[in-house]
Amino acid sequence: MRLLLTGIIAVLLSVNHVLAIEAVYIPQPRSNLDIGHEYHTSLLKKALIHGANGRAIPIIKTSLHMPEARANYEVTKGEKVDVYWFGTDAKKERDMRAIRIPTSKGLIGYRRFIIHKDSIEKFDNIASLLALKQQTACLGAHWPDIRILQASDLPVVVNTMYENIFKRVHAKRCDYFPRAYHDGYNEVSVRKNRYPNLVHYEKIVLHYPFAVYFFTPKSKETLAAWIEDGLNAMIENGEFLRHMQSHLLTAHIFPLEQSADVRYINIPNPSLPEDTDWKNKKYWFQPSDFGFAENKKPALN
């Protein structure tokens, strides 16, 4: 009997050793003004705590500074980066393990614009997709949004460096930087000394179903399941929404109300996997949450 108990204990210790994760590596912030990095890092930490189920909580460590394309490569390879958050598309979900819980309830698909202050009057007169097609958007290289906007014939120019996008709009070398519903306000505020002519334009919302997910290498299923369990637990006990309502990145958007003069332009997202359940209110904000008609079809002109 003693030998049997000893064997069982050994097996349990072995299993716990396999499940033990001492550290989780993520890339460094894109810049020292990258509020979104702290948002996701703190959300990841909370998910690890809520999904621990008695296990020791891993330490989150930063590895290298890298553009998104490099981070994508490193997560796919699974050596220098264990977790990162990307705007999802079908290819990423094939190459990596997607944790299909939007990290900001799909807010990234509701876009408001960063523009030059001299362009306010011009954008005040834009009320349709056809009118928006006369303007050029600035986006980061390798972002899934490029294909989304181009699929609706919206002109796009790309920039390799994140900070250079703001510089380009400020220099009037493109017309607008479409930012996630929660991003633009803070991004303009923290750069007001560097780029004093940038403004956060809130009278147009360009919507397409889109989300940021946490991704892990496919080889790290234990870690992925741990994060997934933690995020679901946070949703069930209300901690997920509290995180959004209290964090600097997203707190200012609540309550989700629109003034009557906001123009809503809806376009499809052909890059989103067909089985994405973006109508699921548990995980995704819906247009009606912002006061927009849910049954409004994607714009055709």
Rank of each mutant, 00 (worst) to 15 (best):
M1C: 05
M1N: 10
L5I: 13
L5S: 11
I9Y: 15
A10W: 07
V11P: 06
V11F: 13
A23R: 08
L33R: 00
L33F: 06
I35G: 06
H37V: 07
L44G: 08
G51K: 01
A52I: 00
N53D: 08
R55P: 08
I60M: 06
I60A: 10
P67Y: 10
E68L: 04
A69C: 02
Y73I: 01
E74Q: 12
E74F: 15
E79C: 09
V83H: 13
G87P: 05
G87D: 07
T88D: 15
K92C: 13
K92P: 14
E93H: 06
M96D: 12
M96S: 12
M96R: 10
A98M: 08
I99G: 04
I99W: 05
I99P: 03
T103K: 00
T103A: 12
L107P: 00
Y110H: 09
R112F: 05
I114W: 06
H116N: 12
D118Q: 10
S119L: 06
K122G: 03
F123W: 07
F123C: 08
N125L: 02
A127M: 02
S128V: 00
L130T: 10
A131D: 15
A141Q: 10
P144W: 13
I146N: 11
R147G: 14
I148H: 03
S152P: 12
D153I: 08
D153T: 10
V158W: 02
N159D: 11
E163L: 05
F166D: 02
K167P: 03
R168A: 14
H170A: 11
A171G: 04
K172Q: 15
K172P: 04
Y176M: 09
F177L: 04
P178S: 12
Y181S: 03
D183Q: 07
N186F: 10
N186H: 12
N186K: 04
E187C: 05
P196V: 05
N197V: 01
V199K: 04
H200I: 02
Y201V: 00
E202D: 05
Y208I: 10
Y208M: 09
V212F: 05
Y213Q: 12
F214E: 05
P217A: 14
K218Q: 15
K220M: 11
K220T: 10
L223K: 05
L223A: 09
A225C: 08
W226T: 03
G230I: 13
A233D: 01
E236H: 07
E239R: 01
L241W: 01
H243G: 04
M244E: 10
H247P: 07
I253N: 00
F254K: 03
L256Q: 04
E257L: 06
E257F: 02
E257Y: 00
S259D: 10
D261L: 03
R263T: 14
I265L: 13
N266D: 15
N266A: 14
I267R: 03
I267D: 07
P268Y: 14
N269R: 04
N269D: 13
P270T: 15
E274K: 09
E274D: 14
T276W: 06
K279E: 15
K281D: 09
K281E: 14
Y283A: 05
Y283D: 07
Y283N: 01
W284Y: 13
F285Y: 13
F285V: 06
Q286M: 09
S288T: 11
S288F: 11
D289M: 04
F290V: 00
A293R: 09
E294S: 12
N295W: 08
K296V: 05
K296C: 11
K297I: 09
A299T: 07
L300S: 14
L300I: 11
